[in-house]
Design a binder for these strands. Structure first.
Length: 429
RNA sequence: GCGGGCGUCGCCAAGUGGUUAAGGCAGCGGCUUGUGGCGCCGCUAUUCGGGGGUUCGAAUCCCCUCGCUCGCCCCA
């Protein structure tokens, strides 16, 4: 096997699969459009420092999962592992932060160097939405609602929304002090992973999956008790409004999320149907990120949806695509020229037209049309070409020969009427 | 980075030491060189992920390697 292969953790998306992708993307884009969210596109490649500063050096993403390399100018570059840092950078750099409020989305590939498994790849795709400049509690609700509605529009069932609050940076550092103190005392009872995290990223210990550690953590100080009145009030309001909007959620005080920049609201939407990589959507507030990266103090909140996981969850009704409307069977040089002209004309209708380019026998071409489940065929051979006409026939079943019509080239009215009567009335939008 | 499972045609597979590597689907050609379905006939792996070894003989046994996959960690 000397052939080339794709790199581990990357996949080819093939035509049949892309039907589903396109349908999913269409529904997403429509919902974003209706929600007044605008698109932004940033480079896939960025300076490594952007992510070190933005995401945080202690995070797993930065410390062990980045695709980083030196370019020819010896600059350290990284294929983006997520989108938020890039968006923040772009807004600062392009002076867009003078606009007080912006709702933005992006969609595209992200890269993380990990061992692939079900629902996890090294190159994967995310839809990200960021509400920039929004501080109000309502913006938290609105963005959670948006994420929820997108998933709902796609018909995805069995979702769990988990929410938590991380407080502001003051709350968090107060808590962290108390927590670190507690950790020192209880260090030896923790599992190895958690012990390692004490120095690197203590908050993440809260999210451990180790059952023993979980048990021990029950007696640890809780971030919730360190929330300022304002932070607490914010959190309670969110819960209350979500209830009013009838969006079901569960509280998860251990939901910390992997990136350093989050403050206040953190949320995740998971599905039991995904196996061990259950998170479809993760998001939260990041009021300090833009400032940390050199911009003004601008609050923001966002989420990201993993498209591969979304596709796994989406129903197979989205795999269906429209079939061919008209298959043009043609043979002989004059006929072929006429067929080309005709196919161009037909494409001005909202019809899927396939011009046979094989030059093979009528029988072969008909078989192909049948295989494609074409709703209608046009036949142009030497005989038709000589008379400057073509035959158009409904192709629904073998016996539909009687529903055929001969039309002269140039008789656009007759063609138009035939199409309206037989095809256009049932064409999907 | 650490564990488990698996690699036979484009896909699904049988074969588990003896000289032809089943079968199905898909594909291609024909029956039918200007008319679809069905059917029938034919073609499609000098080779079993790759390399080395054991053996008279290997897809089948051993070693190494590569890849895939599932899980841990973590995340989308």
């Amino acid at each position: 096997m000397n052939n080339f292969k794709n790199l581990r953790g990357t996949v080819d998306l093939l035509p049949d699969q892309l039907i589903k992708w396109q349908n999913v993307e269409k529904i997403i884009l429509e919902q974003l459009f209706r929600s007044s969210v605008k698109e932004i596109r940033t480079p896939i490649l960025e300076m490594t420092d952007l992510f070190l500063r933005g995401i945080g050096e202690g995070t797993d993403v930065v410390s062990k999962e980045m695709y980083t390399f030196l370019d020819r100018g010896k600059r350290s570059c990284t294929l983006r592992p997520e989108g938020t840092a890039s968006v923040a950078r772009a807004l600062i750099q392009n002076g867009l932060l003078t606009k007080p409020f912006q709702k933005l989305w992006y969609m595209g590939p992200m890269f993380r160097y990990e061992r692939p498994q079900a629902g996890r790849q090294r190159q994967f795709h995310q839809l990200g939405v960021e509400f920039i400049g929004y501080e109000s509690v309502r913006s938290d609700i609105e963005i959670i609602t948006l994420a929820w509605d997108i998933l709902e529009k796609l018909g995805i069932k069995e979702l769990n929304l988990e929410i938590n609050t991380l407080g502001d940076h003051v709350d968090r550092s107060n808590f962290q002090k108390a927590f670190l103190k507690w950790l020192e005392v209880n260090k030896n009872s923790l599992d190895q992973d958690s012990q390692r995290r004490i120095d690197k990223n203590p908050l993440r210990i809260l999210d451990t999956k180790n059952i023993k550690t979980k048990k021990i953590l029950e007696d640890s100080p809780r971030l919730f008790d360190f929330l300022s009145e304002k932070s607490l009030d914010r959190y309670l309001t969110i819960k209350e409004k979500l209830k009013l909007l009838k969006i079901p959620f569960i509280e998860n005080f251990n939901l910390v999320r992997g990136l350093d920049y989050y403050t206040h609201t953190a949320f995740e939407i998971t599905s039991g149907l995904l196996g061990s990589q259950a998170t479809v959507c993760g998001g939260g507030r990041y009021d300090n990120l833009i400032n940390q990266m050199g911009g003004a103090e601008i609050p923001a909140i966002g989420f990201a949806i993993g498209l591969e996981r979304l596709i796994l969850l989406s129903g197979n009704e989205l795999e269906k695509s429209r079939e061919t409307d008209i298959y043009i069977v043609n043979k002989g040089s004059n006929a072929e020229t006429l067929a080309m002209q005709l196919s161009r004309k037909l494409r001005n209708y909202n019809l899927i037209t396939e011009l046979d380019l094989s030059g093979s026998s009528f029988s072969k071409q008909l078989k192909k049309a049948n295989k494609l489940k074409s709703r209608c065929i046009i036949v142009i051979g030497d005989i038709e070409a000589l008379k400057n006409e073509f035959v158009i026939r409904l192709f629904i079943n073998v016996n539909s020969k009687n529903q055929e019509e001969t039309i002269s080239f140039g008789d656009d009215i007759k063609l138009d009427n035939w199409l309206k009567k037989n095809l256009l009335s049932t064409v999907l939008p």
